[in-house]
Design a protein around this nucleic acid. Structure first.
Lengths: 163, 163
DNA sequence: GTTGAAAGGCCCTCTGC
DNA sequence: GCAGAGGGCCTTTCAAC
C-alpha cells in the first residue's frame, strides 16, 4: 500500500476519520459479502456481536456504509452489452441534460473527468440497437462536440470500493 | 449458462430465461436495497413471503443474484481519487499481467474493449502519489504501447446493473 | 401459489465489567 | 468500549388447500 501520508499526525487514518483498522476489516468483509451475521463477523475479528453491531451501526449512520445491495448478473437479465461512452459538451446546459440521464435504467455511472474528454458514462444495454438508440439521443442534443464509444468485450474485475 | 435458446418460445423473456416480470421487480428492489425482508417484498409485490423466498433462492442458486454487498463510501475511507486508465498493450503476455492487477485494492474494474484503446481500468486511489506510483508500474511493463488517464472530478451516478 | 404453524437462529437491547 | 443473557422478530421449512 501507499505509505508516507502523515507528517505530524500520529493517527494512521488521516482522511478516514473515525475509521480504525478494525472498522476497515469489517468494511472489507461486508464489501465482499454483506450477508454475514454479526456473530460471524465477531468470531472472525475476535469481538463480541454487540461490539460489531455498534461499529456497523455507527458506520451506517455516518455514511461510511452507504447501503447494502444485491449484485445482479447483467447478462442473465438480458443486459449483455456493456459500454463506456466519452462525450464532450460545449456548454453547461447540455451537461446538465446528460446528468439527467442518470435515471435511465441502462445508465450505471456518470462522471465528469479531466483529460481528453469531459464526461464518462457507463451504460449496460440489452442490445446493440438499444445502444445505437442511446447514442442517437446524444447526437440529437445541441451543444455536444464529440462522442466516443468503447464497447466492452470482457470484464475481468468489477466491484466496489475497498477500504 | 444454458445453451439452446428456443425458437418457438412464446414468453417475452428471451434472453433472461426463467426471469419473469415478477422476478425483475424483486431484482430491482434488492438491487436498490438488499436489506428488505421477505415479508416486505411480499407485501410490495402482493405475494406471500414463502413465494418470494422461493424466487430469491432460485435466483441466488442460478447466479442471477451474484451476491449481496455493502457499498462503502470511498472518500470516507481515504480513497478520494477515482480515475479511469486506458491502456494499449502490444502482446498478450502483458495483458495477462494487467489482468493480474485485479487483486490490488485500488483496482475496481478491468475491461477489455473495442475502440481507441484495448483495456479500461477503474482505479480508486488514496492520493495522487498512489496514482503516480500505479501508472509508474504500468510504464515499467514491457509491451505496453500507450496509457491515457482520466481523473474523475465528480460522480453523478454509480450503481450496479438494473433489470 | 397460498395459508398457517412451528422450530431455529439471529438481532437488538439491556445490564454489568 | 466490550462481554454476557433474554425477549422478540424474522427466516425457513413443513404441512394442507
Amino acid at each position: 500500500m501507499s505509505g508516507k501520508e502523515t507528517n505530524d499526525d500520529r493517527h494512521p487514518a488521516r482522511k478516514g476519520r473515525g475509521v480504525d483498522p478494525v472498522d476497515r476489516k469489517i468494511l472489507g468483509l461486508l464489501a465482499e459479502n454483506a450477508d454475514r451475521s454479526f456473530a460471524e463477523l465477531g468470531s472472525l475479528l475476535h469481538l463480541s456481536p454487540p461490539a460489531v453491531h455498534e461499529r456497523v451501526k455507527r458506520m451506517k449512520r455516518d455514511g461510511t456504509i452507504k447501503r447494502t445491495v444485491a449484485i445482479i448478473d447483467g447478462e442473465k437479465v438480458g443486459r449483455d452489452l456493456l459500454a463506456f461512452v466519452h462525450l464532450e459538451t460545449s456548454n453547461w446546459e447540455t451537461s446538465r441534460r446528460v446528468l439527467g440521464m442518470a435515471s435511465l435504467d441502462a445508465v450505471e455511472e456518470i462522471h465528469t473527468v479531466a483529460g481528453d474528454t469531459a464526461m464518462i458514462l457507463k451504460v449496460r444495454m440489452t442490445s446493440p440497437g438499444a445502444l445505437e438508440e442511446f447514442l442517437g439521443e446524444l447526437h440529437q442534443m445541441e451543444g455536444f462536440k464529440r462522442v466516443k464509444t468503447f464497447v466492452v468485450l470482457g470484464t475481468y474485475a468489477e466491484r466496489g470500493p475497498y477500504p
